[in-house]
C-alpha cells in the first residue's frame, strides 16, 4: 500500500513532466506538420542553462531565465531555420530538426563536457514534505507537480480564453483557412514554437536536478516523448495528456516490480528455461513504452485520440 502510494505520486510527477514536453511537441506537430526531433534538446538546454544560471544567480532566477533563453532559441530556429526550408517540404524540415538535435548535443559537449554536471535541488526545497506511513516524500517532487499543474492551467486558459489561443486551436485543424481570414499564421507558428521550446526548457529546469543533467538526457527523454505523442495520437493535446500520465505510471511502477516471467508461467503450471524465467518486469521496464506504442499503432494507427494518420 505504502509502495503503491509513493509510486503513484512519483508516476504522477513524472507523467506531468512528460506532458510538459509532449504538449509543445503535439502543438507544433499539429500546426506545422513537423515532428520536431530537437524538442528534447530544448529540454536538455533548459537543464544546462538552469545549472549555469543557478551557479551565477541562484535557482529562482534560473527558473525564469532558462525557459526564456530556450524560448528565444526556439523562435530563432523557427524564423530562420524551419521557415526557410519550409518550401522544400516536410522531409527537409524533419532533417533540419534532426541535425539540430546533434548540433545541440555537440555544443553541450563542448561547453559542459561529456560527464554529468552537478545540478542540485535548491536547499530551500530539500526537505521532506510529508510522510506516507513510514516513507518520507520529498518536497521537491511536490514542487515539480505544482509547477506542472500551474503550467497545465496556464496552457488551458491561454488556449481557451485568449484570442491568440483561439487562433492556435483553429490552426490545429485548418491553418490555411485561419490565414485566409487574415491572421498572421507564420507569426503564430513562431510563437507556438517558442512557447513549446519554453515548456520543454521549463521541464529541463525542474527535471534536470530531480533526475540527472548529462549530454545523453535529450536522447533518453526524446524517445519517450516520441512514444507519448504517437500513443496519444498526433494532433491531440488530450491524447498527449492521457498518454503522458499512462507512460509515466507504467515506467515508474514497472521498475519497482520484481514479478518475473517464471512466476507468470508458474501460475499456469508451466515450466520455462531459467534464462527466460528469471526476467523480471523491472528489467523489462525500458521496453514497455515502446511495446505499448507498437501495440497502439497496430490496433489504432491514429493513436488514442489522434485526428490524423501518423
Amino acid at each position: 500500500m505504502e509502495f503503491f502510494l509513493v509510486q503513484l505520486l512519483n508516476g504522477l510527477a513524472y507523467g506531468l513532466l512528460l506532458f510538459m514536453l509532449s504538449s509543445g511537441l503535439t502543438l507544433i506537430f499539429s500546426m506545422m506538420g513537423v515532428l520536431n526531433f530537437a524538442h528534447a534538446s530544448f529540454y536538455m538546454l533548459g537543464a544546462y542553462f538552469a545549472y549555469q544560471c543557478s551557479k551565477w544567480l541562484g535557482f529562482w532566477p534560473a527558473l525564469v531565465v532558462a525557459p526564456l533563453l530556450v524560448a528565444g532559441i526556439g523562435a530563432l530556429v523557427e524564423r530562420f531555420g524551419l521557415r526557410t526550408v519550409h518550401k522544400f517540404g516536410h522531409v527537409a524540415e524533419l532533417l533540419l530538426t534532426f541535425g539540430l538535435a546533434y548540433v545541440i548535443e555537440e555544443i553541450v559537449h563542448l561547453v559542459w563536457g561529456r560527464a554529468a554536471v552537478d545540478y542540485q535541488i535548491p536547499e530551500a526545497l530539500n526537505f521532506t514534505a510529508f510522510h506516507i506511513l513510514t516513507s518520507s516524500y520529498p518536497a521537491y517532487r511536490v514542487f515539480m507537480m505544482a509547477i506542472s499543474i500551474a503550467m497545465l492551467i496556464g496552457l488551458y486558459l491561454g488556449l481557451t480564453r485568449t484570442r491568440v489561443g483561439l487562433v492556435i486551436q483553429a490552426s490545429l485543424t485548418h491553418p490555411e483557412m485561419v490565414e485566409a481570414l487574415g491572421h498572421n499564421v507564420p507569426r503564430v507558428f513562431m510563437l507556438v514554437f517558442a512557447a513549446g521550446a519554453a515548456l520543454a526548457g521549463l521541464a529541463g529546469v525542474i527535471g534536470g536536478n530531480a533526475f540527472v543533467t548529462e549530454p545523453g538526457m535529450a536522447a533518453a527523454v526524446g524517445s519517450i516523448v516520441f512514444v507519448v505523442v504517437v500513443f496519444g495520437g498526433m494532433g491531440s493535446l488530450l491524447g498527449a495528456f492521457i498518454a503522458s500520465l499512462l507512460i509515466g505510471m507504467v515506467q515508474t511502477f514497472s521498475v519497482g516490480i520484481d514479478y518475473s516471467i517464471g512466476d507468470l508461467a508458474g501460475l499456469f503450471g508451466a515450466q520455462i528455461p531459467e534464462q527466460f524465467a528469471s526476467i523480471t518486469l523491472a528489467r523489462m521496464a525500458p521496453m514497455l513504452p515502446y511495446l505499448l506504442m507498437v501495440m497502439m499503432l497496430v490496433m489504432r494507427p491514429k493513436g488514442l485520440m489522434g485526428t490524423r494518420e501518423t
Binding site: 484570442r163 483561439l166 483553429a170 485543424t173 483557412m177 491572421h183
Partner: peptide, 12 residues
C-alpha cells in the same frame, strides 16, 4: 473549425 463553437468561429 469543428471543435470551436459557432460564436468562436465567427469571432475568428
Amino acid at each position: 473549425f469543428p471543435t470551436l463553437t459557432v460564436i468562436q468561429n465567427m469571432v475568428l
